[in-house]
Design a protein around this nucleic acid. Sequence first.
RNA 1: GGAGCGGUAGCAUAGUCUGGCCUAAUGCGCGCGCCUGGAAAGCGCGUGAGCUGAUGAAGCUCCGUGGGUUCGAAUCCCACCCGCUCCGCCA
Length: 431
Amino acid sequence: MLDIILIRNEPERVRQAMRDLNDEDALVRIDLILELDEKRRALLVDVERMRAEKNEASKRIGISRDPKEREVKIGEMKSLNARLDKLEGELREIEPHLNEEVLWIPNIPAEGVPVGADESANITVRQVGDLPQFDFEALPHWDIGPMLDIIDFERGAKLSGSRFYVLKGLGARLQRALITWMLDVHINQHGYTEIYPPFMVRSECMLGTGNLPKFGENLYHDHEEDFWWVPTAEVPVTNLHRDEIIDGELLPIYYVAYTPCFRREKMSAGRDVRGIKRGHQFDKVEMVKIVQGDPEVSERELLALLDNAEDICRQLGLPYRIVQMCTGDLSFVSAKKFDVEIWAAGSGEWLEVSSCSNFHDFQARRMNMRYRPEKGEKTRYPHTLNGSGLALPRVMIGILENYQQADGSVVIPEVLRPYMGEVEVIKAPEA
RNA sequence: GGAGCGGUAGCAUAGUCUGGCCUAAUGCGCGCGCCUGGAAAGCGCGUGAGCUGAUGAAGCUCCGUGGGUUCGAAUCCCACCCGCUCCGCCA
């Protein structure tokens, strides 16, 4: 959520940001917000004056012993109340409306983010690691998985329909090894604290991280109760400190959590239906940071977060590249964002395995999360960040496709072997 | 699911029956000062969050949430949310 004071004081700057984001809808809303804000404040002046008068009179009625005086005063209060009720009624219309409108305004891009209309203006920042070369025809994972009897697409569809699959044997174990190993790396080597959160949350949490109100159609929710299935651990983990004032000494906070993620994928209907690249349910390890509300600090933290994600690729020996999102391709809540994409040798494409974002104070404002820098100082909004570390099915794809061998087997990266009972190779079952 | 109890500013509690100096008190914690060679103890002062306004003066809002009654609600009424204890059910 943007600071209403920023919108009020620097409307042109905010408008320009909306143009850079290519968000026509938000541009229109800015004008409406300015108008509502103006009305609200004008009303507030009158309402507060009348309330003061009312408070004063009520106090006198309470003290007064003279029944006649009381009667007169009470009569006066009734007419004041009639006028006050009318103004308060108007205020009660405007305030929720204003608050709602502000929730639909996206974050402002950070300084230096390349301006561009869509993903074609994204910038590949660097590429790390050599793409594997094979002297045989590399297969995509949707062929490798069934051949090795570790991915079962038919039965996944039988159980739950398209975009579901079943992992079996060493396939299931590889996934579990990746989860545990990634968590261990972030905990032991990168200084994160592990969190195991609920996988369903209330709508306030979804509003806090910015998934609601705009992206509700991409979420699963219970039809009887106010429960939403998390689309990423970002939601419950960032909301841990919703409505809190954090002791400044505790910052920066680094959390890491494994959760399954649930997404309707309505916005990508029909795309990427093959394989395990894009499912309604997938596993992910997610890093979340809560840091000082200072753009320089959070920028530094973003680069460190990105490096933590890259480190997973490096340790797994997967070639990857870093892509910076231009303004037109930023998510609703991001001020700045880098994607980590690994190379998938079999399907021949770059796969997004992590999205590392700096949200500045956008999410903190939405969830009313503050911190106190020093004892006795005023509260401030911290900056929040997050990044996948990493998204599992796609890392599995990377391993299966890049570590495949001529005989159809797949070599397990060394770092995972202690988590796999020292299995070194996944081989096809004997015919 | 049933019964009972509860939700008050960082924490712990009072206030609710009986509406009005409660525009919310007390203790702890925290901050500053006195005292001390230094510290502890003790003593004194201060200490919730937000909004309007100009970072002024002044004022307003918030006692789980939302409604209602009333000139006036932490206090009375209604609905809902959350927590605890016991019972039932259950991995």
